[in-house]
């Protein structure tokens, strides 16, 4: 799993690629802690290039959202497709989070 951060005016856009499973999910947790330490509150996670997400990955996302919320922050998603989009739908994550087609839309919204 790889991350690419892009600092925008009012938010941080993070591109996540690869697989997000029990082995790599802790990296996401650590990354999330970095954002918090850097004072980021609005984080847009672009999952367009994510190949796979497991329940452990979902848990990391939940944990991240919870921590951001604790700091009056917000976690948004964009670019969902394929298997990841399906998992988001099935698990109800689609209903729990704000999801946009592109990161630009997420920044505007």
């Amino acid at each position: 799993m790889n991350f690419t951060d892009t600092k925008k005016s009012n938010a941080l856009v993070v591109n996540v690629t690869g697989r997000m499973d029990a082995i790599t999910a802790p990296e996401f947790d650590a990354q999330c802690q970095n954002w918090l330490d850097a004072g980021e509150t609005k984080v847009v996670v672009d999952l367009g290039d994510l190949e796979y997400i497991s329940s452990a990955g979902l848990r990391s996302i939940l944990a991240a959202a919870k921590r951001l919320k604790g700091s009056q922050g917000e976690l948004l998603f964009s670019g969902l497709s394929g298997m990841v989009e399906e998992v988001f739908n099935v698990s109800g994550f689609a209903a729990m989070f704000k999801i946009y087609k592109t990161s630009e839309e997420a920044l505007a919204g």
Partner: peptide
Amino acid sequence: NAGHNPPVYMPCNGKPEWIPPLGEPV
């Protein structure tokens, strides 16, 4: 269904089909 992947309904003498998810969270 709380975020579980859709089960399969297999009617007797029929074609199996997914039981559509309700979109409700885990």
